[in-house]
Write a protein that binds this DNA or RNA. Sequence first.
DNA 1: CCCCAACTGACATAAACCTGTCAGTTGCGT
DNA 2: ACGCAACTGACAGGTTTATGTCAGTTGGGG
Lengths: 226, 226
Amino acid sequence: MRRTDRLFELIQILRDGRLHKGADMAERLGVSLRTIYRDMDTLIASGLPVEGERGLGYMMTAPITLPPLNLSLTELEALHLGLAVVSKAADDELKAAAQTLSQKVDAVLPEDRAAPASGWGFAVYPFAEAARGFVHMAPLRAAIRSRRKVEIAYAALDGEETKRTIRPLQMEYWGRVWTLTSWCELRQDFRVFRVDRIKTLDVTFDNFEEEPGKTLADYLDRADAE
Amino acid sequence: MRRTDRLFELIQILRDGRLHKGADMAERLGVSLRTIYRDMDTLIASGLPVEGERGLGYMMTAPITLPPLNLSLTELEALHLGLAVVSKAADDELKAAAQTLSQKVDAVLPEDRAAPASGWGFAVYPFAEAARGFVHMAPLRAAIRSRRKVEIAYAALDGEETKRTIRPLQMEYWGRVWTLTSWCELRQDFRVFRVDRIKTLDVTFDNFEEEPGKTLADYLDRADAE
DNA sequence: CCCCAACTGACATAAACCTGTCAGTTGCGT
DNA sequence: ACGCAACTGACAGGTTTATGTCAGTTGGGG
């Protein structure tokens, strides 16, 4: 096996984010342990986020690696604008992530492509209403990802407050507010909630599967038909 | 010179986006033309956006290359959300760029990190008011980048229409509308315009330099003081 | 104190890679 | 039809890199 192929195999092995011993990888790839040590040196030097620890083994520390991407100038502008929006118009976790990603991108751009001193020509100012819902966004994003039911207390326009269990499907950003499209178990129908009007929110340990008639696709189909 | 060093030099030569002949690069780097052909094969195979044309030479087609980036899951979400916003809430050029960049990112993610069938859990819907200004955004972005004065016909809130020459400094996205911060030569002061209320817009060939008292930093300083 | 596995330098040997030369082709524009 | 420069395969020779072995160190946890 050529060395470059073996390096690629090592990345695939490590990608699972688990702990791996050098000796095991050596056996698997049919080379000596010393060679694996040399290979790991090379991968780490090239920036792969892996850590080795004596007595333990190797583990990848950041699970997602984007390979080299070729961008046009407009794509770079779109990237910066998009990250600027998220830096302002989402919850603290997403804000921080957008900021660190923007910094990472700026750090690797060639000097002639880096941000001009005056910035990229964009600024973003979120609506106060949108900002009020931020407190719920991180748990909602996690619930959407892992498909867990959520219990909310919701204050409708008329002030009436209801408690209900929902299946969160998607959040929408309208510029002024964030909304949440869900399947509502109380009403046995789809409902769209203003995120800023959710009073309390608890993510349950109750998972939900895709049920015909209750998925985001069903909701969108119905919306298209109307 | 080692081969890897030469490959790096080739990238630097090509980065200017101009046409380059193999023979010239061979002479410059002190190797045979055949070796340059082998090198170009290697760079193209690795994804460098270069095209060769018989009778002409080589040229780089996309000037910006991001090296491998390691992202957390939240950074990936922020990236997708940001690009989703730009895919909806900006001019056609930026929209297209955001879409192609999003596709590029999705194409290179490992399967377990790619977009779930139901999407990333976000949707974005722009205000119609914001959309009305889109027609002016591409020329404005270009004018901001290259610091060229712009002639606009502007319809203020009371309906009065004025023609004026401005120095575009920055655009702001408020969710509902886009605005443009400029130095107005008619009023000899900073002015903020609603992009959707600009009736006509012409980018001139008149460049402007940074003048003390008339820069974006001056405007922001004044805004902070108020 | 012992165990675990990462981590390192030095050396000899083997393997892989790179280069220049040569002769040839291809596609486009004039 | 010609000129231009990319593009290709084959070959010989030279250079560089990689590998395994060996003996040693380091740091953390139990």
